[in-house]
């Protein structure tokens, strides 16, 4: 078990580190696709590392009585969950309107500014237009004769969201005021 967990952490750290470094050399336009491909490409290495990678003695502890398949299963599970965590953290940083807003204030002299100054560079018109372009690039929406409509992928997500909104009795950003 310990071997599987160790290998999962090492392989995840290796592929995520390599991918972040590569994004500095050749940034991908579709970062999620890049992350997904990175994860899938790392799977054979996970298997290889589990069976072949020499590890310190502590990482081999307890492997005598457990089935090797259990260690491998735990490696695959942890490797997958680390991938999810990486993607989630990525989008926290990349898409958050709140973090962008805080960053805009930080970049001003003395870390302070009037709201109108922020709005002049980061206003809702630009926010919405940019986000619609991102959604279009990712095939969630498209423009037909100047009007935005959902594509089937977007319709699926929006339908799930509608149900989720009902379950959790939550409000969208537009409904909060």
């Amino acid at each position: 078990m310990l071997r599987g967990l160790t290998v999962a952490v090492l392989v995840s750290a290796a592929w995520i580190g390599a991918q972040i470094a590569w994004m500095h050399v050749r940034p991908a336009s579709n970062r999620f696709r890049a992350m997904l491909l990175g994860y899938l490409a790392s799977l054979p290495f996970l298997l290889l590392a589990y069976f072949r990678l020499p590890l310190p003695q502590f990482a081999q502890a307890g492997s005598g009585t457990e089935a090797w398949s259990m260690g491998l299963l735990h490696a695959v599970v942890l490797h997958l969950l680390i991938f999810f965590f990486y993607v989630e953290c990525f989008y926290h940083v990349e898409r958050s309107v709140t973090l962008r807003f805080l960053l805009e204030i930080l970049d001003r002299p003395e870390g302070a500014c009037r709201l109108d100054d922020i709005r002049s560079v980061y206003n809702i018109d630009k926010m919405i237009a940019t986000r619609l372009d991102v959604l279009a690039a990712n095939n969630y929406v498209e423009q037909r004769q100047g009007r935005w409509v959902l594509k089937s992928k977007g319709r699926l997500f929006a339908t799930v969201m509608k149900f989720s909104k009902w379950v959790f009795q939550s409000q969208t950003q537009r409904e909060r005021l």
Partner: peptide, 23 residues
């Protein structure tokens, strides 16, 4: 899904149906 800006936009478009919405 519930608080995201993208999802908020998509829900608006879902409610608009086939006629969609302009920017």
């Amino acid at each position: 899904f519930n608080g995201g800006f993208s999802m908020s936009l998509m829900l608006e478009l879902l409610q608009a149906g086939e006629k969609g919405l302009s920017t």
